[in-house]
Write a protein that binds this DNA or RNA. Sequence first.
DNA 1: CGAAGCCGTTCGTCAAGGCGAACACATGGA
DNA 2: TCCATGTGTTCGCCTTGACGAACGGCTTCG
Lengths: 190, 190
Amino acid sequence: MAHDESSPGGPPLAVIAASLQRERRRAGLSLAEVARRAGIAKSTLSQLESGTGNPSVETLWALSVTLDVPFAQLVEPPRPRVQVIRAGEGPAFAAERADYVATLLASSPPHTRRDIYLVSAQPGTARESDPHMPGVVEHVVLSTGRALVGIAEDPVELAPGDYVAYPGDIAHVFRALEPDTLAVLVQEHR
Amino acid sequence: MAHDESSPGGPPLAVIAASLQRERRRAGLSLAEVARRAGIAKSTLSQLESGTGNPSVETLWALSVTLDVPFAQLVEPPRPRVQVIRAGEGPAFAAERADYVATLLASSPPHTRRDIYLVSAQPGTARESDPHMPGVVEHVVLSTGRALVGIAEDPVELAPGDYVAYPGDIAHVFRALEPDTLAVLVQEHR
DNA sequence: CGAAGCCGTTCGTCAAGGCGAACACATGGA
DNA sequence: TCCATGTGTTCGCCTTGACGAACGGCTTCG
């Protein structure tokens, strides 16, 4: 399957229409005003908000800048709700070694955007990760213990409260230095 | 300023061109093959990869599906690098009360997308937050201590390792129940 | 060698996107 | 009441994106 989220059929023309109108209303601007600022004809914007038409990237970009919205938000759909996962619960990512456990806490669209893991590790051989998809960024906040984290060739030693971010599409490590080392890993896809 | 990241001038036509070619090469496909699968003329794709032209959303969408790339990645530029913030360092978010400290660890485009905070709190009056922008989602992983976290009317008690996610655009709380309670807060904008 | 098979580019045509003007519809003063 | 100003919609015109065919360049096979 490709793209997962909302790509069953065609392009999200309806989503764009809804997003444009929602964001414009949120900004409290009139259709004419937005069109003027974006440098496009209000007729064009009108058609877009009504779901008619298939804007060029240039046009959509101008609108995303004017509305101060990250472009992607104009194309991608809406919202989630509440969710709790107790320590020990959740889809524990069986590690190759018994001294490393990662629990998937949150993932938006199956395998796109951003996942949050709780990592529990014991000292021992390092947990080496091959590069993931290009564009992945990993953020690690150490909770308890100490660990070597980061790029494989040049990891950083973290103490509780320390934070590190690094590209996930090149080889990287997580090596616990103390027993019961706990960390939060945010894996941000792009 | 709008959009921040890479929107100084016009739309990222060059970025799109580069992305298309990079992703196509990564998939090991020929220009003609990609065009065929996406259902567009190879001449069109050729022009796009050469930076000429300004594709419609429909066209770009077809390509993003075919290349199995999250669409946004085609428009947004490349990569970040490494970054470390030691415990105690970083722009400590001065709290109203002295028993609550939030440190901003990571933010992509100044106030869009997703911020990561390290929250340190002491027992006392709860930290109530007014609703943020609509569409904000907050994820909390408790590191040490115990805390009541979540929707203001119905918070959840968290122990170390526990996780909770909730909409940030309605009133919500963070109330430490033990001294030196530490948590990681991922604030995801949309 | 050609001929056949790819690759990616360029060219002429046509439909569709984007434009400005004219339009219908609500407000709110004078 | 009538005009003025604001909203968002609809209407031709014209530019431009997307298409298919033809092209030059490069391998491979007979």
